[in-house]
Amino acid sequence: MKLRSLLFVPGDSDRKFAKGRMAGADVLILDLEDAVAPSMKAAAREQVSAWLGDADNIEASLFVRVNPLDTGMTQGDLAVVVRPGLAGILVPKANGAHDIATIADMIDPLEEAAGMMPGAVKIMVVATETPQAMFALGSYTPPHPRLVGLTWGAEDLGAAIGATANKEADGQWTEPYRFARSLCLFAAASAGVVPVDTLYADFRDANGLEADCRRARRDGFVGRIAIHPDQVATINRCFSPSEDEIAQARKIVDAFAANPDAGTLGIDGKMYDIPHLKSAQKTLAAAGETA
Results as ranks from 00 to 15, higher is better:
139 S>D: 07
66 V>R: 00
106 M>R: 01
78 L>N: 03
28 L>E: 04
153 G>R: 00
27 V>G: 03
39 S>G: 15
145 P>Q: 05
141 T>D: 05
47 Q>N: 12
70 D>K: 14
22 M>W: 06
85 G>A: 09
119 G>A: 01
98 H>T: 13
28 L>K: 00
149 G>M: 02
145 P>D: 05
82 V>C: 06
60 A>M: 13
37 A>K: 14
116 M>L: 10
74 T>I: 14
93 K>E: 09
141 T>Q: 06
124 M>E: 04
18 A>F: 10
28 L>W: 02
123 I>G: 02
87 A>E: 10
127 A>R: 00
66 V>F: 11
112 E>D: 13
20 G>D: 12
56 D>H: 13
147 L>V: 04
93 K>I: 12
55 A>T: 04
149 G>F: 02
108 D>Q: 13
142 P>K: 11
87 A>F: 13
65 R>N: 10
104 A>R: 01
22 M>G: 07
157 L>D: 00
148 V>L: 08
128 T>A: 02
142 P>G: 06
147 L>S: 01
97 A>T: 10
53 G>L: 12
20 G>T: 09
115 G>A: 07
45 R>C: 10
40 M>R: 15
63 F>S: 06
148 V>M: 07
56 D>K: 15
133 A>L: 06
154 A>M: 10
103 I>W: 01
17 F>N: 01
